[in-house]
């Protein structure tokens, strides 16, 4: 449990709380259930993409093509729906397509022996061209509403998508903490050389992680279609960097070997909470990227700076 709620999570939770209090004081709308649901709804794709990114970073990899993978999966889901396929099947096609694309990225990294950032940078270009060529320059629009219930009808006040995302997090948590996959993944993240020497099938772990991350991006695509019923050329362009920011804010190390799922959730929530709150209090949306960058700098800077220990103690004492 101490592992689960380490220093960074406490810092982030406190940051979310402070931000929420400030916004609530400045705008009467902020704390209404409707608005909080909006924040959650706006977080769906990022929650899933950041979860996949967390796993990749923990393994010492990264995937900057994840947004384009979501885009391609979204085209698959959208076109199946438009072809009149049963919505449930079309919805499942999202994660499947994502997993296939993740396998491609994993194979290039694992067999091509090139750093993940370079490999996925290349794939980013290839996928982007792929999106354009499959769309043929037009948008997918007017996609049938078959999946809309996923994001609309609240079950106990929460859309089913959020429940599904919770289940995805739970599944990944079990995978990490209750199966050998977790320790193996972290071992590869710490040092793939040592992992190999200790008998871990490094290549298989690599492939599996990319496949899981891809499937999560594909699930994000299903929710994307359910929410927007439209695919345009620019789909997913900002997703990878936001996912990296969220995971790193949460306390996952990009050097590998360390990850926290709670931290990632808090990182996503903090980013979206700030975007929503700033708009509510009247700060133009153009400043949002600046705020995202500043948050990264502040959180990491605080931790790096001398004051970090004191701050951590300050946050921990009540607990």
């Amino acid at each position: 449990m101490t592992r689960l709620l380490g220093g960074r999570e406490a810092t982030l939770a406190a940051a979310c709380l402070v931000a929420a209090l400030v916004f609530a004081a400045a705008s009467p709308v902020f704390l209404t259930p409707g608005n909080l649901l909006t924040v959650l709804r706006n977080s769906t794709e990022l929650l899933l993409a950041a979860l996949g990114m967390t796993l990749l970073l923990a393994m010492g990899a990264i995937d900057v093509s994840i947004g384009m993978a979501m885009g391609l999966a979204a085209i698959v889901v959208g076109q199946l729906l438009m072809a009149g396929i049963d919505p449930a099947l079309a919805g499942i096609a999202g994660p499947l397509a994502g997993a296939a694309l993740g396998l491609v990225a994993g194979a290039v990294v694992a067999f091509g022996k090139i750093p993940a950032i370079v490999a996925t940078l290349g794939l980013l270009g290839v996928y982007r061209a792929g999106i354009f060529l499959t769309l043929g320059g037009a948008w997918l629009s007017g996609i049938p509403t078959g999946l809309t219930d996923l994001v609309a009808t609240p079950v106990l006040g929460v859309p089913p998508a959020i429940v599904l995302i919770g289940l995805a997090y739970l599944a990944v948590f079990v995978l990490l903490r209750r199966t050998p996959f977790g320790p193996h993944l972290l071992a590869v993240g710490n040092s793939d050389e040592k992992a190999r020497l200790s008998g871990i099938a490094v290549t298989r772990i690599r492939l599996m992680t990319f496949v899981v991350a891809g499937a999560l991006a594909g699930l994000a695509a299903t929710f994307y279609i359910a929410t927007y019923r439209n695919v345009s050329m620019t789909i997913g362009a900002t997703l990878p960097l936001e996912a990296i920011a969220a995971a790193v804010l949460g306390g996952t190390s990009i050097l590998g070997g360390r990850c926290t799922l709670v931290g990632t959730v808090l990182g996503v929530i903090l980013i979206r909470l700030m975007q929503n709150g700033l708009l509510l209090v009247g700060v133009p949306s153009l400043w949002q990227p600046v705020v995202t960058g500043a948050m990264l700098l502040i959180v990491l800077g605080l931790e790096a700076g001398a004051g970090s220990e004191g701050l951590r103690r300050l946050v921990r004492r009540p607990a």
């Binding site: 909006t38 706006n42 050329m233 620019t234 975007q275 009247g282 949306s285 153009l286």
Partner: peptide, 25 residues
């Protein structure tokens, strides 16, 4: 209201529009 900018992305536009509706009942 002051104009907000979504870049070229449909999902950003939806996010901003949703936030604007919440901010201005």
């Amino acid at each position: 209201l002051e104009p907000q900018y979504a870049g070229g992305a449909a999902d950003r536009a939806a996010q901003i529009a949703t936030d604007l509706m919440a901010a201005n009942p």
